[in-house]
Amino acid sequence: MADNPENIEIKPGDFAPLDKQAGPDKEKIAAPSLTFGQDVWRRLKSNKTAFTSFIVLVLLFLMAFGGQALYHHDPNAQSPKYANLPPKIPGVNIHGLNGHINQSGKDVDAYAQAGASSKVHYVLGTDYLGRDLFARIMYGTRISLEIALIATLIDLTIGVGFGILSGWKGGRVDLFMQRIIEILSSVPSLVVMVLMATAFQKTGMASIIAALALINWTTMARLTRAQTLQLKNQDFILAARTLGESAPKIAWKHLLPNLSSVIIIQTMFTIPNAIFFEAFLSYIGIGISSPQASLGTLISDGQKNFQFLPYQMWYPAIVLIILMLAFNLLGDGMRDAFDPKSKR
């Protein structure tokens, strides 16, 4: 079991005592040291799904907010002559994208039928009023995103503020604030939204945003509170308190940075939730009303013709699904990336 120590070659000076200064460093740490941010970014990048989702979201945002600069078509311009035309991309001859449709078993050039000149083409076709569907989808995506983002921002402000206050103050204030959350969260959120949207029907976007904001902040508040309660008693906060820093300053300088991961992750799930509820309200007819469009209204419009012109619903539905997928996958990825437990 033991080595045989006999045949070892010993050079003179081998047994000289080691010069400590020149010798190996006692405290050397060999693993590369990463800051928290670098570590999160590294892990996010290594998560292919999350990273792809991130890229997809960037592209969708570019399309929604900058697409009109490249694609000059008024999403609200009606041309009844060209109603319900299928997609036609010049130079592409694949059925479904070449302006042809199946009419009672026969392949018909819908554009010729409508008397359109050969120059007329709609990349994703037109709707029942002859509006350019691609332009409308870009426009609808923008409205959907705007609503979701503004609502999320409001959620964030209320939720984080409420949570920090509740957790920091503790005692009676906390108890009272927790009751408010408890009551709010035992009402189905959909019902509140429907009520709000019905009550302020004619105000359009604002009412939806208000409805979304009113409901979604409770989760955020609950998470922030729990985290604040934990952080409150940690040494670095106690140190700041003993040094006499003011409460708002502590909240801003010490609490928020430590809450950031929880907040960012929760935001990644609040946004798709808001997108979903907006589409839902618009779909049942109490959300965005024309001539404005959102993904929900586009799906609802498209559904009417689904049997004959399925693309009118498929395209907005696909955009909605991709948005939801990308946000959820990115959220999952972020949660893993922020969670040191899942470190590998």
Partner: peptide, 22 residues
């Protein structure tokens, strides 16, 4: 499971109705 969250129930309902039903 993510698709179940990402595909809104109304879209799924319409698709099921059309493709499986009709």
């Amino acid at each position: 499971s993510i698709l179940g969250i990402a595909v809104p129930s109304f879209v799924l309902a319409i698709l099921l109705q059309y493709y499986l039903g009709l």
